[in-house]
Design a protein around this nucleic acid. Structure first.
Lengths: 201, 201
DNA sequence: CAAAATTTTGTACGCTCATACAATTTTTTG
DNA sequence: CAAAAAATTGTATGAGCGTACAAAATTTTG
C-alpha cells in the first residue's frame, strides 16, 4: 500500500513537471509551479523527492520516452532498412510535439545539461540510442569508417531542425521538417544505396 | 570629455559581459560577475546602464559582430558565388570560437531570446542577415521557389553543428564541421549548379 | 473508537540576485 | 586651491526561489 501511494504521487509530480516543462522550459520550472501543476501544495515535493533536481531528472526521462515511443511504434511497422531510417526521422517529429514552446523547452534542457552531470548523462544516453538506431540502418551498406559521419549528419539535421523550430524564423510544420531531412539524406546516400537499403531486412 | 569616459566604461562593461558570456552563458551572467570581469565594483552597472538587460543586449550585438567580422573578412576574398558561399560557412566556424563552452553560450542565448522580445529581435536580425547572404549566392542558379528551402537547409546545418558541438557527443573540430556541411551542400546542389556558381561573379 | 502512522499543508529560513542610492573618492572648473 | 561636478564604491532592500519542518488533516491499525 505504501509503495502504491508513493509511486502515484511521484508519477503525478513527474507529469506535472513535464507539463510545466513543455510550457516554460527548464528555467520556468519552480517547485511551486510543479506542485501546482500536479494539483498539490507547494511543500509536497520535498516529501516525495530528495530535491527538485531529482524530479527534473525523472521528468526528462519521461519526456524522452514520449518521443522514443513514437520512434519505436513506427519502427515496428517498418519492413526494410530504408523504412526503418524513415521511422527514426518521422518519430523524432510528431505532429503534436513539433511546436515552438516545446522546441524551446528541449533547447533549455540542452543548456541545463551543460552544467548538470546527471542531465548530461541522460543527454548522452539519448544520443547514443539515436546513433545506434541510425547505425543499424546503414551498417550493411557502407564501410565502417563512413558510418559515424553519416550518423552525425542525420543527428545534426534532426537537432538543427528543432533548433530552427524554436527560433521560428519561419513556421515550419513537422511534415516540412521531415521532408527536408529526407531529401538531404537521399542526396547523401545516392540512389544505389537507397535501393539496397530497401532490399535488406 | 563626458561622452568619452562614458563610452569607454560602457564598452568595458560590454566586453566584460562578453567574456563572462563565453564562459558561463546567459544564465551565469550576474551583474556582479560582469562588473568584476570588467574590473569595476558591483554597483557601477546601474550607473552606466538602465539595467542588466540593456548590457546583455549590447553584449549579444558585440558577440555577433565578432562572428560577422569573420564572415565579411572571408567574403571579401571570394571571387565567385561558390567561394562566397564557402566564406559564409567557414566564417561561421572560426577555429578559436568553435568550442564547447562558447557553443553552449550561444545555445543559452537562443533560450533566453524565447522570452525576451529584445533578444528575439536581435536573433531574427542575425538570421535575416545569414539568409540574405546565402540567398545572394544562389538566387541566379535556382528558381525563386527553391531558394528558401536551400537557405533553410544551410541554416539548419550550421545551427545543428553548433548544437552538436555544445553537446560534445564527439569532439568535432571546426574543420570537420565545415567539411560535413560542405559535403551536404555539394550533394544538394549537384555538380552542374556548382560549376555555374564558380562561373558567376 | 482511540491510538498510531501516514500524508498533506502552509510557512519560515536562508540564499542569490538586480537594483537603487547614500557616502566617498576623484576629477574638473573658475 | 577651494568649490562644484562627476565618477565610483559599498551596501541596503526587496523579490524569487529551494528546502526543511512543525502543525494539521487524513488514513490505518488494533
Amino acid at each position: 500500500m505504501k509503495r502504491s501511494i508513493e509511486d502515484i504521487r511521484r508519477q503525478e509530480l513527474i507529469e506535472g513537471a513535464y507539463r510545466a516543462f513543455l510550457q516554460f522550459g527548464m528555467d520556468g520550472l519552480t517547485t511551486a509551479r510543479i506542485c501546482k501543476e500536479a494539483g498539490m501544495s507547494p511543500g509536497i515535493l520535498s516529501y516525495y523527492f530528495k530535491n527538485k533536481d531529482e524530479v527534473l531528472f525523472w521528468m526528462v526521462r519521461h519526456a524522452n520516452r514520449v518521443i522514443m515511443d513514437e520512434v519505436v511504434e513506427r519502427m515496428k511497422r517498418a519492413s526494410n532498412r530504408w523504412d526503418r531510417l524513415l521511422a527514426i526521422i518521422e518519430g523524432n517529429f510528431p505532429e503534436t510535439l513539433f511546436e515552438q514552446n516545446i522546441a524551446n523547452a528541449w533547447l533549455s534542457f540542452y543548456v541545463a545539461s551543460a552544467r548538470d552531470p546527471q542531465l548530461q548523462r541522460l543527454q548522452r544516453l539519448f544520443h547514443r540510442r539515436l546513433a545506434s538506431n541510425i547505425t543499424s540502418c546503414v551498417d550493411q551498406i557502407m564501410d565502417d569508417e563512413s558510418v559515424p559521419r553519416f550518423v552525425a549528419t542525420v543527428a545534426i539535421l534532426i537537432d538543427g531542425s528543432w533548433l530552427h523550430r524554436a527560433a521560428a524564423h519561419t513556421k515550419t510544420s513537422s511534415v516540412e521538417a521531415i521532408d527536408l531531412i529526407k531529401t538531404q539524406i537521399e542526396h547523401a546516400l545516392g540512389t544505389a544505396k537507397m535501393v539496397e537499403m530497401k532490399r535488406i531486412k
